[in-house]
Amino acid sequence: MNDDVLATVIDILTTKAGLPPGPVTPTATLQEAGVDSMAAAVLAMILEDDHHLVITETALTAQSTVADLAAFIETQLATRA
């Protein structure tokens, strides 16, 4: 998995969505990381606005760990139209 995508996802969740950074680790589940509907909305917004990638909050929060979330986004980026 591309470390840059993982780092970007963690950065968005912490500095831009305001989640406390400590729990947001690659192996943490989204619940352990504190990813709530607001954080998912901020992530979806930034993916759309800055990376032209439209993913619903539902699809994002269906992932189990932060690493899985990053891998899922990486796959979507790769197959982006």
């Binding site: 607001m38 998912a40 901020v42 917004m45 909050e57």
Partner: peptide, 11 residues
Amino acid sequence: RGPEVLRNAVR
């Protein structure tokens, strides 16, 4: 509708 409001508010 929280997430929708949040996205629109920021943008």
